[in-house]
Design a protein around this nucleic acid. Sequence first.
DNA 1: TATTTGTCGAGCGATTATTAAAGGTTTATG
DNA 2: CATAAACCTTTAATAATCGCTCGACAAATA
Lengths: 228, 228
Amino acid sequence: MKADPMETKLKIAEAAIALFTSQGFKGTTVRQIAKKAGVNLALISYHFGGKKGLLEELITSFFEGYIRRIEIIYHTSSSPTVKGSFIEVVEALLIYQQRNLPLARFVYREMTLDSTLVRELMSTYLIKEKYFLQTLFEKGMKKKEFRRQPVDFLSIQFKDMMMLPFLHPLYLAEVYQINAETETFIQPYKKWMMNWFDKCVCLPERKNPLLSAVQKPLFGSIQEKWGS
Amino acid sequence: MKADPMETKLKIAEAAIALFTSQGFKGTTVRQIAKKAGVNLALISYHFGGKKGLLEELITSFFEGYIRRIEIIYHTSSSPTVKGSFIEVVEALLIYQQRNLPLARFVYREMTLDSTLVRELMSTYLIKEKYFLQTLFEKGMKKKEFRRQPVDFLSIQFKDMMMLPFLHPLYLAEVYQINAETETFIQPYKKWMMNWFDKCVCLPERKNPLLSAVQKPLFGSIQEKWGS
DNA sequence: TATTTGTCGAGCGATTATTAAAGGTTTATG
DNA sequence: CATAAACCTTTAATAATCGCTCGACAAATA
């Protein structure tokens, strides 16, 4: 009897993700993967070129999808404001990570190790991510949408907040009874993130004429420049 | 020849921390530890009761020191404001984690796994940490020092920001050329954290009479209530 | 001297990832 | 429909490595 090859490969990948996530890569044996996937042991080496190849394929596919989602928004966002683009990024990445929660968790954990693989992944994907985020932040600052401030810590914290619930789901569950897997999680967390965004990234809004009056001298001098 | 037993134990611990940090617990062998420490293999079992015992002793000692530092400030802080207590906590924990950077890094990574040990550590130490943080936040809200808001995400984010540079030092170094080990790191990062604290935790200050005037109607109506 | 404590080398038993060889199944081609 | 090629699966075996323990020996302690 012969099963669908893609199905076999998928079953192996799914079993591996589940085991890597809870036990770590080194803490998982190919026998466990084969047993959980219900396939023969040797198929792992056959399909993925060994345990290491399986790991690399999983991580790479995760980052490919991750970066692509940022890239698409970066190039095709129709939002008039930079903040709007950020909202799109937050939404897309939260959904992507939640849909691949176990994968995300073990990828992020593996990225805290020292290895040539990790360094390669950083220079391939995370450098790109940094570029997209920082460029967006700088664009918002130039448009006077965001407060002027160094972008390093800003994008680091942004990325960290995006990563938090998916790297520490067990902590959230055990200590705070917050389940990052449920669909009801995304909305409040997104709200929380955008609250941070408004307060720490954006310039304070000046709806109230009294408030804007306070800062008017500054803008006045700039507008004079434009007028000349 | 017989060396000082404590020195041997320390050498093993130091070697283990370094190796666990870069390769992970499961990715490190007792032979590597013994070789790096320059001691015999059997001494690891002799002093720590095996590889697992070594792990548990390292993690426990880290959390003991971690919690103690919060606890001391919580019970003896002489600061008149709650924000002042938070500043003390931030300072103490940043220094503690930096001084034990490799240990912190591998402890935090290990805490993302599923194991009975991890669950025990969470219910022993992280529940306590949650209690201290949330109580402080609530105290600040009652004193009208902090803005009223749910404390869950607040303390989660606070803890996460405290943890960030020590869980991802390689990421900071490779992608941002930020070295979390240097002494010059703590100050700007602390500043960054307190900036977040002011904007997202504290109530907005009302030094400017024009600014406070804007919000007066709201407070006026409340004061009327009090007056009646 | 007798006992405890620290150190060491050797090696045990179990488990690891991987592969080679061979048989089975599907698919493409004539 | 037959045949060949490509693909999938299994069994069995391999070499390497794992954590750990044993007994001998040395040094400190009593």
